[in-house]
Amino acid sequence: MANDFRQSSVRLSCYSCPLRSMSHFRRFSEDELDFVARFKRGELSTDAGATVVVEGTNSAHLYTVLEGWGFRYKILEDGRRQILNYVVPGDLVGLQGALMAEMQHSVEALTPMTLCMFERSRLFTLFEKHASLAYDLTWLAAREESILDEHLLSIGRRTALERAAYLLAFLHERGRLTGLLDETRRYVPVTQTHVADTLGLSIVHTNKTLRRLGDRGMIRWLDRGCDVLDVEALCEVANWRPDDALVRPFI
């Protein structure tokens, strides 16, 4: 994929960050906010299809998604791709590269994205001087693990119809909580190829499965994505319920 992105200095102050006004995210203390504002080094803007971080590399930066959708993935040597998870505003990108020798997965933009850039070399100052923010990083890593647990359960034990219903309900919930979706905006920007690469299904099987959900009035498939029409019905088919809307941290 093309790496069509633009780095800039800080244009949006952490003190006026739109994520801070959302009830889904926990409040910073004044000291925490001051530190994060100094920790931030700029912003990265990407077009859809741009690769934000690449497996096997070691970036000098960490990123927090400010706007847009993206996804984490790994590729086998023969080109087959497995999408591991999706990223939305408030999610941290690049932590593996900060704590390990190199990134173990890649991240690509599904839509145009804006990400806040943080200098990796200053990460340990966060652990030394701001225990609450260090806890937040631990929380984010643990939350990612719990999401991957659910994804693995879905691939291993749910039927194709249940898998697709779960994925679209999951994406709708993540979009709703982070301001990407609401009662009038129901469009989830994933193609059938993205769905297939997430669920481990062939394109043909994915197409037939999504058509069944559409025939039941749960989704309406559009160009490069779908409208989620009945999220409750999707949850029932998947036998899945989102967690209670816990207040979550971000950096």
Rank of each mutant, 00 (worst) to 15 (best):
A2G: 05
A2K: 15
N3M: 11
D4Y: 11
D4K: 13
F5T: 05
Q7G: 13
S8C: 04
R11M: 04
S16R: 14
M22S: 10
H24P: 04
R26V: 02
R27K: 13
F28A: 07
E30I: 00
E30S: 12
V36N: 05
A37D: 11
A37H: 08
R38P: 03
F39N: 07
F39K: 01
F39P: 09
R41K: 14
E43W: 09
L44P: 11
S45F: 15
T46I: 07
D47H: 14
D47R: 09
A48V: 07
T51I: 10
T51G: 04
V54W: 07
E55Q: 12
E55W: 02
G56P: 14
T57R: 13
N58K: 13
V65I: 14
W69Q: 06
F71V: 04
F71L: 09
F71K: 13
K74H: 11
K74A: 14
D78E: 15
G79C: 10
Q82Y: 14
I83S: 09
I83N: 04
N85H: 14
N85M: 09
V87R: 09
V88G: 06
P89Y: 03
D91G: 08
L92V: 08
L95C: 08
L95I: 14
Q96H: 10
Q96I: 13
G97L: 00
L99V: 15
L99H: 02
M100E: 13
Q104F: 07
S106F: 01
S106C: 10
L110C: 08
L110D: 06
T111G: 13
T114S: 12
L115V: 05
E119R: 08
R120Y: 07
R120L: 04
S121L: 10
F127W: 02
E128Y: 02
K129E: 12
L133H: 06
A134Y: 06
A134K: 04
A134R: 01
Y135W: 13
D136F: 02
L137P: 00
L137S: 03
W139H: 11
W139R: 01
A141M: 15
R143S: 12
E144P: 10
I147D: 07
L148Y: 06
L148M: 11
D149T: 08
D149N: 12
D149C: 09
H151R: 04
L152S: 11
G156N: 12
G156I: 08
T159E: 04
A164Y: 06
L167C: 05
L167T: 00
L167H: 02
A169V: 00
E173S: 05
R174E: 15
R176E: 11
T178I: 03
T178G: 00
E183R: 01
T184V: 11
R185F: 02
H194D: 06
V195T: 06
V195W: 06
D197M: 10
D197V: 00
S202E: 15
I203M: 05
V204R: 03
N207A: 08
T209E: 00
R211Q: 02
R211F: 04
R211W: 00
R212A: 04
L213G: 01
L213H: 04
R216E: 03
M218E: 06
M218C: 05
M218A: 03
I219E: 05
I219M: 01
W221T: 02
R224T: 08
G225R: 01
V228L: 05
A233E: 00
L234I: 03
V237A: 08
A238R: 01
D244A: 15
L246Y: 15
P249S: 05
P249A: 09
F250Q: 00
I251S: 07
I251Q: 03
